[in-house]
Amino acid sequence: MAEQNPIGATVRRARAQSGRTLRDLAAGIGVSVGTMSAIENGKVALTIDRLHEIARYLDVPASELLAPQPDQPPAEPPAGATGPAGATGGAWRTFAELDLDPALRAAVQVFTDLGYHGATMRLVAHAADSSVAGIYHYHRSKQQLLATLMTRTMEDIEWRVAAADAEGGSPAERFALMVEAIALCHTVRRDPAFITATETRSLEEPARSAVAEARRRIQRRLDRAAIAAAADGSFAAPDPRNTARVVATMCMALPYWFSSEGPASSAEVARDYAAHALAMMQVQPR
C-alpha cells in the first residue's frame, strides 16, 4: 500500500489539534467537505495559495504544515483550550460525531455487519448512496478505507486518554480516569472501536504498525500510572503492570456486548469499569 501524502496527514493533525472538524475547515477555506477530505487523504495536491489559506484558518505557520511528523502521537487539545467537541475542561468526556466522510461512515456500517473480508466497495457505495466510482474518487481501495477509519479511531481514543491522564491529581486517580476514557470510547464509538479491535490483522503496512504503536502508547500510560500508584502505596496488586493490561483488554471487549438501548448508559458503564479496575488493583484507603 502506498504511503499517504505526508502534507495531507499533517493538515489533518493540525486541524485536530485546533479542535476543528473536517466540515469546519472546508467551510473556512471555501471548499467542499469531499475536497477537504481528499486533501487530507493525499488525493488532491495542495497549491501554495490553498496551503496558506489552511494555515491562516488554523492559525499555524504554513511551514509547520510542510514539516510532517509521522512518528509523533496525535495532538492533544491544549490545557484549558476548546477540545474537538467544543467543550472546555473534561472535553474528553464529550463526544461529537466522529469526523468521517460519507464513504467512511458507510464503511463502518458494512465492516461491522460483514467484516472487512466480507465487504466490497460496491456494498460500501450502496450504503453511502453513491456510485462505486464516487467512492474510488476519494478512497483508492477498501484497504485505504480500513486504514483511515482505524487511524481516526485510534487518534480519537489516544487524545482522550492523554487528556484524562493529565486531569488526574495522583497516579491512582490518573489510572481510574484513563480507564473511564477508554471505556467511554469503546461504548460511545462502539462500531469503529469494534472494527479497530478485530480487524488489525487485515491492515497492511505501514498502517498496521502505526495502529499497533498507538495501542502501545495508550498501554504505556496505563502501565506508568499503575506502577506509580503501587509505588506510593495506593495499589496493592502484586503485579500492577500485568493487571493494567488485563484492564485494557477488558475495556476493548466492551463493543462485543454494550448496547445503547441497554439498561446502563455509556457514562455509567465507563464509571463502573473504572471502579472495577480500581478493585482489581486492590486500591488502598488513604
Rank of each mutant, 00 (worst) to 15 (best):
P6Q: 00
P68R: 02
A207V: 11
R105A: 14
M121Q: 15
T151G: 11
V161M: 08
E167A: 14
D24G: 14
P263I: 09
T151M: 11
R13Y: 10
E40F: 01
A237S: 07
V124N: 00
V110K: 06
L222V: 10
M280G: 11
E155W: 10
Q4T: 02
V124E: 00
G80R: 02
R241T: 15
T47K: 03
A264G: 14
V110H: 10
R224P: 05
E199A: 04
I135Q: 12
V269K: 12
F175N: 02
T120G: 11
A228Y: 04
D59T: 07
I227P: 05
V246Q: 15
A236W: 02
L66H: 01
A237W: 07
G8R: 03
A81W: 07
M150A: 08
A55W: 00
C185G: 08
A79L: 11
S170A: 03
G34S: 12
R286T: 14
L98G: 04
M280E: 08
I195F: 03
M154H: 08
T112I: 13
P285Y: 12
I29L: 01
H117I: 12
A181R: 01
G168L: 10
A230G: 07
N242Q: 15
I48C: 08
P263R: 14
A133C: 14
A16F: 06
Y273C: 10
E40D: 08
A237N: 06
A133G: 15
E158V: 04
C185N: 06
D191I: 05
E155L: 07
S18C: 06
H139I: 10
F95P: 03
E158D: 04
L222Q: 09
E64V: 02
A16Q: 08
A9Q: 06
E180I: 12
R56M: 02
P6S: 01
P77L: 06
D129R: 15
A14E: 03
F194C: 04
A274N: 09
P74Y: 08
R140G: 12
E204Q: 14
E167T: 12
L177W: 11
R152Q: 06
R23V: 13
T94I: 08
A125Y: 11
P70I: 01
G134T: 05
E155H: 11
R122Y: 13
T187A: 06
G90N: 13
E3I: 05
W257L: 15
L98Q: 00
A229G: 00
W159H: 07
R271C: 11
P171K: 11
F111I: 09
S202V: 08
S63K: 00
A237M: 05
H186Q: 05
A163K: 06
P240W: 00
A236F: 07
Q219M: 14
L149A: 05
A9M: 08
T88C: 12
A96K: 04
A106E: 10
L104D: 06
M252L: 11
F95W: 09
R12T: 05
D101N: 05
G115K: 13
H186R: 05
A267N: 13
S63G: 01
A55R: 02
R122D: 15
M178T: 06
M280R: 04
A172N: 10
G89K: 02
L177G: 02
V33T: 15
D272I: 03
L278P: 01
V188I: 04
P206N: 09
S259E: 13
M178K: 03
A279R: 14
V179H: 01
